[in-house]
């Protein structure tokens, strides 16, 4: 099978359409089971009380906010390296979902901070760098829409996305590098999780669910982007200029 043919947007369009229902179904199932375990089965935390249950949406949202940014930057980089239109379309499709999860991570974090620290917001390294990530997503999206020439818009926002990757390790390691009010990682790649198994199970299920959800909505959005871009009139035709302006 020749997979490279799917790098053409109009060939990828139907393939993406076939994948969306599967990712949606798996996402719905994982989130349903995750919510059931997290809200109904898992016991309360002896230190934080039931406010700890916020982590079942906070941590997955925060992970997705960082992960999606890296994936967006990779697609932008691939787009620039291979001059591939579909890669830029993927980068464009990822940004709004990443921004939403960043916003949710900040909001649910405030909901956790108020009862736990006594403050909705503090300017510690973890919170500040995550807020900067929200501005980065906004910047990448705004830069794209502010440039009329699509190819230049893709490249400019791609460069911005790639440069901004430097913030991701800063967010991730901020709780180690600085003395933050935000607690350290409960789950890391190098040590055993500092959580009860039942709580960890719920959190990982929610993360997996958010991950599958992200794939489903991003595929769905990239289909919209393909339609929007491919249905634009040809650039060479001067009589199509008003239509081009309208389509943007």
């Amino acid at each position: 099978m020749n997979w490279s043919k799917y790098s053409a947007p109009l060939a990828f369009y139907p393939l993406a359409g076939k994948m969306i229902p599967w990712f949606s179904a798996v996402a719905a199932l994982a989130i349903a089971v995750g919510l059931y375990i997290g809200l109904l089965v898992a016991p309360t935390d002896f230190q934080q009380g039931d406010s700890y249950r916020i982590i079942f949406v906070h941590v997955p949202a925060a992970w997705m906010s960082m992960f999606l940014y890296v994936v967006m930057a990779i697609w932008a980089g691939v787009g620039m390296g291979l001059n591939a239109r579909l890669s830029f379309m993927m980068a464009q499709a990822i940004a709004p979902t990443g921004a939403m999860f960043t916003f949710l991570a900040l909001l649910t974090g405030a909901m956790w901070g108020k009862p736990t620290w006594g403050a909705w917001w503090v300017w510690d390294a973890r919170l500040t760098s995550e807020l900067i990530l929200l501005f980065q997503y906004a910047g990448v999206m705004l830069l794209r829409t502010s440039i009329d020439d699509l190819r230049r818009a893709d490249r400019a926002s791609g460069v911005l996305a790639l440069v901004g990757v430097v913030n991701i390790p800063i967010i991730y390691f901020s709780v180690k590098w600085w003395n933050t009010l935000h607690q350290g990682a409960s789950v890391s790649m190098t040590a055993a999780p500092k959580m009860a198994t039942i709580m960890l199970t719920a959190m990982l299920l929610m993360t997996f669910g958010f991950w599958m959800y992200s794939i489903a909505v991003i595929l769905s959005r990239v289909r919209c982007v393909i339609l929007e871009r491919e249905s634009q009139p040809a650039w060479g035709n001067p009589s199509a200029a008003p239509e081009v302006a309208e389509a943007r």
């Binding site: 919510l35 809200l39 009380g49 039931d50 406010s51 916020i54 949406v57 906070h58 909901m111 009862p115």
Partner: peptide, 12 residues
Amino acid sequence: MGGYGLYVWTSF
């Protein structure tokens, strides 16, 4: 939610 209902439910 053990007194944390407002925060937990707002989040979810």
